[in-house]
Design a protein around this nucleic acid. Sequence first.
DNA 1: CTCATCTCTTGACTTAAGTCAATGCACGTA
DNA 2: TACGTGCATTGACTTAAGTCAAGAGATGAG
Lengths: 192, 192
Amino acid sequence: MKDIFYKYMSRWTSLNEEDQQAIVDEIQIDEFKKGTVLIIQGDTPTKCYFILKGCVRQYAINEEGREVTSNFYTEEQAIAIFNHHKPDKTSDYTFTCMEDSILVVGDLVTEKEMYNKHPQLETMTRRMIEESFSQVQEEFAAFIASSPEERFKTLLMKRPSLIDRVPQHQLASYLGITAESLSRIKKRIHQD
Amino acid sequence: MKDIFYKYMSRWTSLNEEDQQAIVDEIQIDEFKKGTVLIIQGDTPTKCYFILKGCVRQYAINEEGREVTSNFYTEEQAIAIFNHHKPDKTSDYTFTCMEDSILVVGDLVTEKEMYNKHPQLETMTRRMIEESFSQVQEEFAAFIASSPEERFKTLLMKRPSLIDRVPQHQLASYLGITAESLSRIKKRIHQD
DNA sequence: CTCATCTCTTGACTTAAGTCAATGCACGTA
DNA sequence: TACGTGCATTGACTTAAGTCAAGAGATGAG
């Protein structure tokens, strides 16, 4: 499992193998059962996560008490929650495992120590964050410009595995439509 | 004008005043006329920008030849475009000044030198990027969960100055609806 | 001043998404 | 096995967003 993280990290840094291995040796990897709640909406998270295997859903309960899914994280994605600019530092979202998962667990409290200990780690994470940020910006721009049917088609193209891994009504929520509408869109598409 | 940037920067770093001033002394500030194109879709940008005064629109021409607006940047916002993960490093968007603007201009080529010269600069930019990223994630999640009317209301609440500064049909595009629909939504709201 | 261009509103009409409800199927637990 | 729960589909109906087009007003250039 650590190989996966090692390989992933190699994309981001010019650390020599020794330093890179030192970082990898220090990371904590845990297994979580399907249904595990990693972070609860309203709580202040002390951990961050990187997915080696599995799928994690990000959702919130809105003012009407309904669940609204805002993201699914899968293999080789970091669950990037930055809340230190918020006064109370609480998370607006709940994160749960949609299936048995294996995650790298980072400690937000000792984050700074890690940066001091491995000076190039900050460059690495900055670049990782930049890519994630860039991708989210692109996805957001595409979402704005798309109809619900186009959004579903994009999902089929870019993240087909989600279809098998998460319930359709949650996918619908993630696409900003109702489960009924998604059902109809699927029917329409399969007739084409 | 440099005061604005200095004050903004103070939020992000524990640099002493001297170091901070050194960075501020080094930055380049330019004025741009309304209509100036900063970055053209398809080109490879060599500059990045931070807005001291003014408004910049991000848009793309889609496959049907229509303009789709995906963001407006206003005072104290960085135009954060990270494309080094793309093979050809080109920008998917065009950026134009919606009004006369004053911008901090950063050079992407000498970026690394700046980080080496001011070691804490990287921490500062990482934290700035983290906040921007967090905000975009929140906006994206809210967008997904909202109806067009709710999106407009949110815009009224969070960024009211955009109403006076950009044409309504571009606002509509940014909200993912047609100009006609936005007109109708405004009418509906003003009757309430 | 005239004219062209751009922007916004509005009406008529269409389309698709939302709401409510019912049905059937799959799965997990006792 | 029976039952409860969760999920997906479907129908009836409503609502709102999209499309097309026209009209009016504002602005800038010649």
